[in-house]
Design a protein around this nucleic acid. Structure first.
Lengths: 156, 156
DNA sequence: CCTGAAAATCGTGAGAT
DNA sequence: ATCTCACGATTTTCAGG
């Protein structure tokens, strides 16, 4: 695989995490490289998977999904095949934005984006009450999202 | 404000949430519009804040931050000025990706991206042990991130 | 609000250093 | 590895329906 990222790559990643619409010319100016050097580096970062996506961020409220719900899920049985089945159910649900499998008092933490609590209620039936393997779940409704991003800190 | 999004806008948002590098011509083909119509709509969506960002997604492991930690924070006092102070502390920490203020057993839920547990340990001192106002916090280390995105489901 | 074409900008490869 | 330059593609603007 590709070896350690040099300071140029890191700076580019920082900038692209802020705004990936910045033109390669401006990026070039910012890091003191030529546009084509920037072009090659970005291509390499994408090919190697360091950059694993390029997306627009949509304001949930603007598309009718103002409610973010956080759910702690506790499994009944951690057998591998059952775990797989549950995971798929979570991942395939479009309202589920994030699925973390964690150590501690519960097993999964979900972040969900819903339009109203009735929608969430309906989803709980599909996701948690369905067949089996889920012992309990705990719901937390967010009153406010103070920060929500995927930005990873990158040391220079 | 901008009026309700029509089906064209919704489709565009869906596509841009997947990949905002898709050329406006391809987008135009996908939604059956002219490229310039697509251009104007995207500009409007950005101006109105429906699209609130355009970012590259970086693989945390590839930049030396393989560990995602989830923290439940319980405050000692929910006085507004203290709350504000704590919030700022969380938001300003680069390792903190997400800050949710929630109802229920605890007050804040944080998602953090760190390089090692020692880094996390150091951050707990800055974030939670500092002056006052934090009663307790509970740490959950994620063994696996099955899904991590900000994609909002958009109904057509 | 759309289309279609013109104008400006940008991304990308070739060749040289 | 890099840069410069030139070409092709894309974005953006503008006239007209």
């Amino acid at each position: 695989m590709s070896h350690s990222l040099d300071p140029y790559d890191r700076k580019l990643l920082m900038l692209l995490q802020e705004n990936n619409r910045t033109s390669q010319r401006d990026l070039a100016d910012a890091v003191n490289l030529s546009p084509s050097a920037v072009n090659r580096r970005i291509a390499a970062l994408e090919a190697s998977g360091v950059i694993c996506g390029n997306v627009s961020v949509v304001d949930p409220a603007a598309v009718g999904r103002p409610i973010t719900v956080i759910v702690e899920v506790q499994l009944a049985d951690e057998r591998l095949d059952l775990l797989e089945e549950v995971t798929q159910r979570f991942v395939n649900c479009p309202q589920v934005q994030q699925v973390y499998y964690v150590t501690g008092d519960f097993d999964f933490l979900l972040v969900m984006s819903v339009s109203e609590m009735t929608e969430y209620e309906r989803l709980t039936r599909e996701l948690f009450f369905m067949p089996g393997n889920i012992r309990t779940f705990k719901t937390y409704v967010t009153m406010r999202r103070f920060k929500q991003g995927l930005k990873v800190p990158i040391d220079v």
